[in-house]
Design a protein around this nucleic acid. Structure first.
Lengths: 204, 204, 204, 204
DNA sequence: TATGAATGAGTCTTCATTCAT
DNA sequence: AATGAATGAAGACTCATTCAT
């Protein structure tokens, strides 16, 4: 009845907890939450099944820890970009680089993406995580723009739309591969559209 | 060995099969695939568990039947729109109506949307369904535009981008409710962007 | 509660009952009792599942009827042999013919044999059937010998031993196919042994 | 995906596995494979149902383990007899002893015999087990005879016939109890027949 | 008589979690 | 702190038998 969740203090114990998170998150990303069981996680982490419940409340808790730890890298790499100057004159090139970076990142963890996006819809905690991160991302980009002298003319909304477009584009490129779709052209159209979005907001 | 999946011939039996599909689909949409069991479905359909397996191969099959039956209404209402004239002069109003329609429809099945989008990522059959429907939708809208004298200048790509934008917008309006986001303005921005997308493609 | 097992009187009804027996017995012989279900039997018999329980108490009853009807042909073909003269001078040839006949018969219904022999051990009714038939066979052969002037010098026991030897021989030939076993030689040995068995019992 | 069949390492766990085999095998032998369920096995073994599937692939696997473990004692006690001298002068007595031994052994596990013989016909694994053991038995006895200076004059075939006769005899004595059958006489006849079988093969 | 739809108890199997050591 | 054995509730699915028509 007493929930005795230990917070490990010894080095080895901490490493063990980290290993469990890593193993659990990886397996769940690869095979899905419901197709991953604690025995597999324990095995992958080189740990006994029993120990898991000394560090985590339950299976769900492992996943959440993983999301907290690795989620940013997979879903919000943009949050890492700091103090970057926006080069208005080379906007196209800059955007293309950013999109390619985004796509590269997605590709690295294709199944992770699929599985976790899935959970976002059925798992309140995961949903909350994404909600907050998206907010944070919007704010972060908005600040970046303001630092670069953009005028705050419904910036919130515009940034959100922009992120959505980039997301869709990347998603399309990575997963769908519609045969009659030219992704280079699509990218250009998207970039142009984004430019259009902000065309009156650049102060200089 | 012989998989005897009965196709009901009597009226009452057909109704019962429909009821199972409805009950199963509803429950899965509401609570998730893995959180819905056959007993619940049977109970909800006022039916014994046994009969389920005379009409369906397994639980998964029930869901797929539901998707096939109700999916269009929930996810691709646009496929129903036929022979509509695009009123270029009242484009804004038209788009707003369409978006509102879209949103209304989404609201009717909020959880359905969440759950099924989830499955799309972990279930090959569901993924296939969406892939095909998206293709169909793109084609349908493209044809609509061409019938309305639009020039096919990367129409495929543009339509896809447009659908994505509308989707994101609706999603945002319905689910997220970001507090610092003005959805009316956002809608206007999106519509303007869509107009921008096609500005050089209208022949008249 | 009332066991209403109808005995069909109309021609068509009788035919239907026969068809069920045939279908049920065939399927059970081919696939085993526990791997055959009533739906399959009904389908094979071109009959509804419901009707089965108007002619038979249960699934087991169908099988028993089949055994009663077809069992003799499969297991006790010798019971059909009537009024045959034993040709003492051509004993070898006669025995060989008989054994070949036996083998041929076994081969015709290899799986039937396997499945039913299996049931003999776990099913009291089947066991009883075989017990009685074996008794009958022993008597029948004993009588045949006595009619042919054999002296009853522990004939019961000897006949039983003989039948056992022939049974084993046939079984070996049909199922096992031990690679280092010469079945022609084995047959000869068995026949000689049988001759030895009765060598002092022939009155002439 | 990963079939984690644990091989128990702790003493108590090993004992538990043995207990499951014993309980499962006993129940199946007593009541039949299809009439024994995992809950019963678990209960009989004083174990939870879950643990069964950590040590065994499925119900069938339990039975096979039991067969492997107890089968020899029940069906092939002769395999245990080693280095025995065949006493040609007291052949009758020796055979009688052997037969009595055989019968005693059969009696210990009457139902086991019945049930397993049944499965032999419908279960490939069981059939294989018996095929191999019979081969082994034949070889073993053949070798015994050769060591005792018997000439290899179709020994394979003769030994096989002999084993069949003894088997039938024992079976008859134990199960059938035909009322008009004198088993002492029958035994004598069988022994004489076996002697006849080898009468020209004894070198001394 | 006949149909085939419907029942629901029963079965095997899985797995998150707890326990004994 | 750690192990891995053990638990048992829960779930998908089957099928002999009964019922409504």
């Amino acid at each position: 009845m007493d929930e005795i969740i230990r917070e490990p203090k010894q080095k080895r114990a901490i490493e063990k907890k980290e290993k469990i998170i890593e193993a659990g998150f990886n397996l769940i990303c690869k095979n899905g939450y419901y197709n991953t069981n604690t025995a597999q996680i324990a095995k992958e982490a080189n740990v006994s099944t029993g120990i898991i419940y000394q560090y985590f409340k339950d299976k769900h808790d492992i996943f959440l820890n993983g999301l907290e730890k690795y989620g940013n890298d997979i879903f919000f790499p943009i949050l890492k970009v700091k103090n970057k100057k926006i080069d208005v004159k080379n906007f196209n090139k800059m955007m293309k680089n950013m999109i390619n970076e985004y796509i590269k990142n997605h590709k690295l963890s294709k199944t992770a993406h699929e599985e976790i996006t899935a959970m976002m819809h059925s798992d309140k905690d995961v949903a909350k995580y994404f909600y907050n991160k998206e907010l944070e991302t919007t704010k972060s980009i908005k600040n970046l723009l303001i630092e670069n002298k953009f005028i705050d003319n419904n910036l919130n909304e515009k940034v959100h739309i922009m992120i959505g477009m980039i997301d869709n584009l990347c998603h399309e490129v990575i997963y769908h591969k519609h045969k009659d779709m030219n992704y280079d052209i699509m990218t250009d159209i998207v970039i142009n559209n984004i430019k259009e979005l902000f065309k009156n907001d650049i102060s200089i």
